[in-house]
Computed example of a mutant assay.
Amino acid sequence: MSAFFGPLEPDGRVPPHQQTRVAAFLVSAHGALARQFAIALPAKFDAAWQTELNAQFYRESEIVSLLMRATTWVPDLALGPMATSWEMAWLPTPIEGMADHAHVQAIQLATLAHAMHAGVRPAALLPTEAKADDPFVFALRRIEFESSRLLQAQILYLKGPDLAPFRDTVSAALERRHGEVRRLWREALDSIDISLANDTKP
């Protein structure tokens, strides 16, 4: 096992089967976020934090579009059952102790998005010798850049005053999501002989 993509192609590109498996995971996750943001968008904004839903919806859609075009896709028979497990994992999970549906929906989204943007760093898998002008390499670096920006908005919302009375509930939901996303990401990488460096968590 290696902590990076490879062995690289002779021209420095990431092997297509590794591109396909990683891109499929990312498209599944960011596609689910885009769909859920679209559903969560109200017809009229009644609170300032709701405007961020609109921005995040477009950012997630852009990530999916970028990956679809930048990836060298190859047939992968294992993707069927893997993608099914991913899609099931992205579904909203119940949050006990909160009656405000709008906040529950936003928390579900923010915790999933936080777990994805903080815990899944695909550009970290690129070895230094990877071809810098390869579309897939560029796409992963662009996604990581966008993730850091999106993460700040999720942190501001999850730590904001509106959720202060529910801090323990939010923290528990966030921890569950991080553990789930980390497990699925690790399993996807294990399947293509990549091991997350310093990943000692279950």
Results as ranks from 00 to 15, higher is better:
M1S: 11
M1C: 11
S2Q: 09
S2A: 14
S2F: 04
A3K: 10
A3V: 13
F4E: 11
F5E: 04
F5P: 02
P7M: 09
L8E: 03
E9H: 03
G12P: 00
R13P: 00
V14M: 03
P15T: 15
P16G: 07
H17L: 11
H17W: 04
Q18K: 03
Q19K: 08
T20V: 06
R21K: 05
A23F: 01
A24S: 13
L26P: 00
A32T: 06
A32F: 03
A32D: 08
L33V: 06
A34M: 07
R35A: 14
R35S: 12
A38D: 11
A40V: 03
A40L: 04
A40N: 14
A40E: 14
P42M: 06
K44M: 06
F45L: 14
A48D: 15
Q50Y: 02
Q50C: 01
E52G: 09
E52D: 12
N54F: 09
R59N: 09
R59P: 00
R59Y: 05
E60I: 05
E62S: 12
V64F: 02
L66E: 15
M68W: 09
W73E: 10
V74F: 11
V74D: 14
D76P: 01
D76A: 10
L77K: 15
G80T: 09
T84L: 15
T84P: 01
S85R: 15
S85I: 08
S85A: 15
W86H: 02
M88Q: 10
A89K: 02
A89S: 09
W90D: 05
W90S: 10
L91Q: 15
T93L: 15
P94F: 10
I95G: 00
I95S: 02
M98A: 08
A99I: 11
A102P: 01
A102W: 07
V104T: 12
A106M: 14
L109G: 10
A110G: 07
T111S: 06
L112P: 05
L112M: 13
L112V: 07
H114N: 13
A115Y: 01
M116N: 08
M116Y: 11
A118Q: 12
A118L: 08
G119I: 03
G119A: 04
V120W: 00
P122W: 05
L125N: 02
L126M: 03
L126K: 00
L126F: 03
P127M: 07
P127V: 10
T128A: 11
T128D: 12
E129M: 03
K131Q: 12
A132G: 04
F136K: 07
V137W: 04
F138A: 14
A139H: 04
R142H: 05
R142Q: 09
E144W: 05
E144P: 00
S148F: 02
R149G: 03
L158N: 13
K159L: 02
G160S: 08
G160Q: 09
P161T: 15
L163R: 01
F166Y: 09
R167A: 14
T169G: 06
A172C: 03
A172D: 01
L174S: 13
L174Q: 13
E175L: 14
E175D: 14
R176K: 12
R177F: 01
G179C: 09
G179K: 02
V181C: 10
V181K: 08
R183Y: 07
R183K: 12
A188K: 00
L189D: 00
L189W: 00
S191G: 02
S191W: 01
I192R: 00
D193Y: 11
L196Y: 01
T200N: 12
T200D: 09
T200I: 08
